[in-house]
Design a protein around this nucleic acid. Structure first.
Lengths: 327, 327
DNA sequence: CTGAAAGCGCTTACAG
DNA sequence: CTGAAAGCGCTTACAG
């Protein structure tokens, strides 16, 4: 079954390929007789014509692919959901999302040079040189900043705000001595550090001592050791802000291992609201993110930047504490 | 910064584009002077030449993209890991994995017609007509069968074997009355039904009554209701095989809500070994899958089929019970 | 309003 | 061993 080309559509509808292209791309400024238009559209439909992305990309030097580069650690359900939303939103604009998890594969430059996407979204920050090279090649680069960023072409999730929200919530429950459970995986440091900075800021603003930080692996042993250190001083920690829900689940297990009660002895709050959070014993209090709003904003930003239009308004109020039994 | 083309490399190294192509693609049967070869390679390196995927695809009618179509439900960490491995393995063969989550976006045909991938991997089954159309267009279609399948171009994860393993493991612990906790989400039915069939088969082979099946949503309420029904009869259920770890976590919460003890009153086994499994109270026994071996097999299959070579040997022993405290 | 022609960058018969 | 030329399917000045 050879491919159906615009030449086939032209022949079928008795016009030139030029006209086919004009009709199918709804080319602005060109007036086409309604009868011709319809004939072309019908022929295309009948033949099942789909323009070749390769030819289009070759011609324009740009494809309608949006390359979404994932960080090299496992991303988890929040990012999965984000990408789902993104795919749907961008599909409405004829853009296809190509997700690439970088893990140990070819250098990024090879990928974007080969694929010539119209835009590249980084879900973890790009090296400055890399970003520059892509911009020079005419690719829209949307990096992810970890916090507010002046650069408009940046998708910023204010990680600091998450930590601050955790600290404020715990303080409002009467806690004065907080701990921060950092992830054991160093690759998460960039995110974890920002969230921690938010917790610190919150404590500071409320006149509380700085949080005691311990890395917590996703194992009972690691969490238990961290809990021991938190409880050792003469000002024992009474509440833990965890990097995310999985770390929080580990802390819960660590607290349990010491025979302490949650939330009476130690309160715990996570981030993400994964399904396991509400099923934990006790059910985990956590920070929920409005992923759909963030995905929509990101999609709108890409479309706007590509079209040279106005950037959308950044959504606020995207975080929200879901209070359950661990606080 | 205009794109570096093979013409630039040809000029730089003082040969024709033909020669550049021969050298860079290590074209078999063509003998090139070592000196020429080196000159071309160095020029390409110096100029930072990357062949245009678009031009190549247009020329050959096929790109080096492997389209991986995800099902329309959130995939979870196991599939994430699978794709990670797959991306890495296929990158070694110059293939880039493009992941597409279908959710509500454009029809699949539009995507593969536009992108002209060399292969399409379906992580949930394709409609037969869709698969046929892709094959006719010369695309390698690797569907996912839910169980053993005679068709060689199929990635079969024997879901039934998972269920059977769960049943056998519980029986070996002395349980005679089993329940199956099915997922609440209907979109998972295709998988869940196969796993359930495996549990049934296991029970049957061991002379045990058929498992009592209840759907369990990821909420304490839903799980609690299921547990109530399981414990109601005069032959109360003493062990639950869950569709996956999240469902198992819900069952744990449901059992807890009834004041019953795990594993003394009710034992629970999941599937996947997500991080939350080992952090649960009690730590969850689960079926672990050798994702890396399966990914490698899938990657090898694709490469072999593309090259027309021999298909690799299907790995066995890819499942494995991780025993913890819930059984 | 519509068509003939060029050219995007590549590979590959086909000649030397 | 190497080069000139064609053609993949598209879009877009440029002519009518």
């Amino acid at each position: 079954m050879p491919r159906v080309t615009s030449a086939d559509v032209a022949r079928e509808s008795g016009v030139s390929r030029t006209t086919v292209s004009y009709v199918l791309n709804a080319k602005a400024g060109v007036v086409i007789t309604e009868a011709t238009r319809r004939r072309v559209l019908e022929a295309a439909e009948r033949l099942g014509y789909t323009p070749s992305a390769a030819a289009r990309a070759l011609r324009s030097g740009r494809s309608d692919l949006v390359l979404c580069v994932l960080p090299d650690w496992t991303v988890g359900p929040v990012i999965d959901t984000l990408i789902d939303h993104l795919t749907t939103s961008l599909a409405e604009h004829g853009l296809s999302v190509l997700v690439h998890s970088g893990r140990g594969s070819r250098p990024l430059a090879e990928l974007w040079r080969a694929v010539t996407p119209c835009a590249v979204l980084g879900l973890s920050p790009f090296a400055e040189a890399e970003a520059r090279a892509m911009r020079q090649a005419g690719i829209l680069v949307v990096g992810t900043a970890l916090d507010e960023d002046p650069h408009p072409e940046t998708f910023a999730v204010p990680q600091g705000a998450i930590g601050r929200l955790q600290a404020e919530f715990l303080a409002a429950r009467g806690h004065r001595v907080l701990a921060y459970a950092a992830p054991g995986d160093d690759r998460l440091a960039a995110f974890a550090d920002r969230r921690l900075a938010g917790v610190r800021l919150g404590c500071d603003a409320l006149g509380m001592p700085a949080p005691l930080v311990e890395p917590v692996e996703l194992s009972v042993g690691s969490a238990s050791a961290a809990v021991a250190r938190w409880r050792a001083g003469d000002q024992p920690v009474t509440a833990v802000a965890a990097y995310n829900d999985e770390v929080a689940l580990a802390v819960l297990a660590g607290v349990r291992a010491h025979g302490l009660r949650v939330p009476q002895d130690v309160a715990v709050i996570g981030v993400d609201d994964i399904p396991a959070a509400r099923l934990a014993a006790p059910a985990l209090t956590t920070v929920w993110q409005a992923i759909d709003a963030q995905a929509q904003y990101l999609a709108d930003s890409v479309v706007a930047a590509l079209a040279g239009g106005d950037l959308p308004v950044r959504p606020d109020d995207v975080f929200h504490v879901v209070e359950r039994d661990s606080t």
